[in-house]
Design a binder for these strands. Structure first.
Lengths: 271, 271
DNA sequence: GGGCCCGTTCCGCTCAGCGAGACAGGGCCG
DNA sequence: CGGCCCTGTCTCGCTGAGCGGAACGGGCCC
C-alpha cells in the first residue's frame, strides 16, 4: 500500500499480491487479511504490525479490531492482539472434521496403544491433505505435521491413499504443477507417482518411506463414509528402524472397518 | 420455528433481542449472525433457514455467503451451506489452546493409558470452563462434555479447580447469579460451594461426585504457566463404582509438574 | 530535548453495502 | 393440468457505514 522508493518509509506490505488490493476494499476482505496476518506460529501481533502485514489503513484495522474484539475472534493483552477463543470454538463446530474426529478418536487411541507410534487422521482439502487429528507420545515435536496443518499429497502416505482411493480426477490436478522434493527420496516424477498409486490401489493401503522425513515411514488406509466414497485417511508413522509395516496394515484395516460402521451409525449419511 | 399469529408474513427473526438489531447493521455483525446461526449440532443450513434464524435480509445473506464461500469459512453442497474447513484451520491457530494442548497432549495420553478413563483439559473462558482437549475410549458418547464445549464452573471438577486456584475475584462473579442444578447432587448453595473450594485449595486438587452426571466423578488439578499463575485444569472422569480417587490424584499431580515444565520450556512465558 | 513509533481519535467524502422486489425453477396438491 | 408456495438468484437506485488521511498524546531511546 505504501509506495516503493522513499528509503525511510516502511517497506511495503508483506503481501503485495495483485488480488490483495482487490480483496481489501470489502469489509470481509479486510477482516480476512487481518485474521490471516497471524501465521501458524505467531502468538500475538501489535496493531502496527498488522497494518504492515495487511496493508490496510491503520484506522481501519483499529476499527475492525475493536469489532473483532467484541465478538471474541480477537483477544487483547496490553496492546497485543491474539486470536481469540471463539475462533477455536467455532472451528470445532465444522462438521467435516467434527464428525470424523469424534468417530475416529477412540480408535486412534487404540492404534496408539497397540503401536506406540504417531497416528494421523487426514482429509483432502484442495490439493493437499489437512490433518484433523494426531495422537502421539512424547518427544516428537519436530515432525512436520500438526493438527490443522497441511502437507502435499504426493509425499505423504495419507495423501497417496487419497490419490489412490479418492476422486479420480485428483491425480491429474496434482501432477499439473511440479511435485516438490521434500526429502531426497520424495517421488517427483509423475510416472513413478502413478505407479505407486496403482500399487496402493492393488494393495488396499499406501506406504511412504522417508519421502516426508528422513528416518520415518508411514502406512495409510482409506476410510469410507456411508455413501461408500472415501472421506479420509488414517495412518501410522514410525521410525524406519523399528517400523513393522505388516503389523500396521493389519491394525489399520481392522480399525478402518469399525470406523466406517461407526460413522454410518452416528451420521445420517453425509460427511 | 414459525411464530404464532399473522399466518402469511414470516415472523421476523428467531432472536428479536434488543442488541440483535444493533449488531445487524454492520457487515461484521451480519457475518457473526450468519456463522452463529449454525448451532453446535447443525450440520448444514439452507439459505432461507439462515435468513430465518438471523433476521438478515435474504439478498444480504446471499451476498455475504458468496464471500464467505470464497474465503472458505463456508462450504457448499447442493444448496446447503456448511461451516468450512478454513474455520477449523484458523481455530487451531488460537494460541491459548494450541500451546497448552500441544504441551499437555502426550501427558493426557499417558494418563489415559494409566487409568483407562476420560481425561479432560480445560481453561477458564468467561464464567465457564471450555474444554480444549478430551481423551477417552469407546462408548462414552453420552458424556455432556465435548471439545470446545462449555460447562459451568460450580459443578465440574475442572471448574472448581479454577475457582480454587485461579483469579480471586472469580468466585464472587460466579455466585452473583443463581447456580444451576445439573444433577440432584449439584451444589447450588454459595456457602457450600465456598467450603468445597476451600477444601480443594487445602488439598491441592478438586473433586466432583455426581454433580455433573449421575454415576460419575471427576478429579481435577490446576496447571500453572511460567508466570506461576494458573492457566488450565486437568481432570480424570470415571464411573463411581470403579473410580480410585487417590490413584488419580497421584497421577495428576505428577503429570502436572511435568506439564508446567514443558510449558515453560516451549513458551517464552505467556499463555 | 527531539525524533520515532506506538495506539487512538476525528471528520468529511463516497462507494460498498443495502434490501425491496422481480425472477426462475422445482415439488406438491387439488 | 394450473395454481401455489418455497426455494435460490439477480437487479438496481439510494444512502449511511465504512473509509483513510491527518492530527494527537504518550512511551521509549538516542
Amino acid at each position: 500500500m505504501h509506495s516503493p522508493s522513499s528509503p525511510d518509509v516502511k517497506p511495503l506490505a508483506i503481501v503485495p499480491s495483485p488480488e490483495h488490493d482487490a480483496a481489501a476494499n470489502s469489509v470481509l476482505g479486510k477482516v480476512r487479511l487481518i485474521l490471516e496476518a497471524f501465521g501458524p506460529d505467531d502468538e500475538s501481533l501489535g496493531l502496527s504490525e498488522i497494518v504492515r502485514r495487511t496493508g490496510v489503513a491503520k484506522a481501519s484495522v483499529h476499527r475492525l479490531a475493536q469489532e473483532l474484539l467484541q465478538w471474541g475472534l480477537l483477544e487483547r493483552r496490553g496492546s497485543e492482539y491474539w486470536l481469540g477463543m471463539r475462533l477455536f470454538e467455532i472451528g470445532q463446530r465444522v462438521p467435516r472434521q467434527r464428525i470424523l474426529r469424534e468417530a475416529a478418536r477412540p480408535f486412534m487411541e487404540d492404534l496408539y496403544q497397540a503401536t506406540g507410534e504417531t497416528i494421523h487422521l487426514a482429509v483432502l482439502d484442495g490439493l493437499e491433505v489437512i490433518y484433523l487429528e494426531k495422537v502421539s507420545g512424547h518427544g516428537q515435536v519436530s515432525r512436520p505435521s500438526r493438527v490443522a496443518g497441511r502437507m502435499p499429497l504426493h509425499c505423504t502416505a495419507t495423501g497417496k491413499a487419497l490419490l489412490a482411493f479418492g476422486p479420480a480426477a485428483l491425480f491429474g490436478d496434482v501432477v499439473a504443477t511440479p511435485l516438490a522434493r521434500v526429502t531426497p527420496r520424495t517421488v517427483t516424477a509423475p510416472k513413478l507417482l502413478a505407479q505407486e498409486i496403482q500399487q496402493a490401489r492393488k494393495a488396499g493401503y499406501a506406504v511412504e518411506r522417508e519421502q516426508t522425513r528422513v528416518g520415518y515411514l508411514s502406512v495409510a488406509i482409506p476410510l469410507t463414509g456411508a455413501t461408500g466414497t472415501m472421506v479420509a485417511a488414517l495412518s501410522v508413522t514410525a521410525p524406519t528402524f523399528r517400523a513393522d509395516v505388516n503389523k500396521y496394515v493389519g491394525l489399520l484395516s481392522m480399525v478402518s472397518r469399525r470406523i466406517t460402521k461407526s460413522i454410518m451409525a452416528a451420521d445420517g449419511g453425509r460427511t
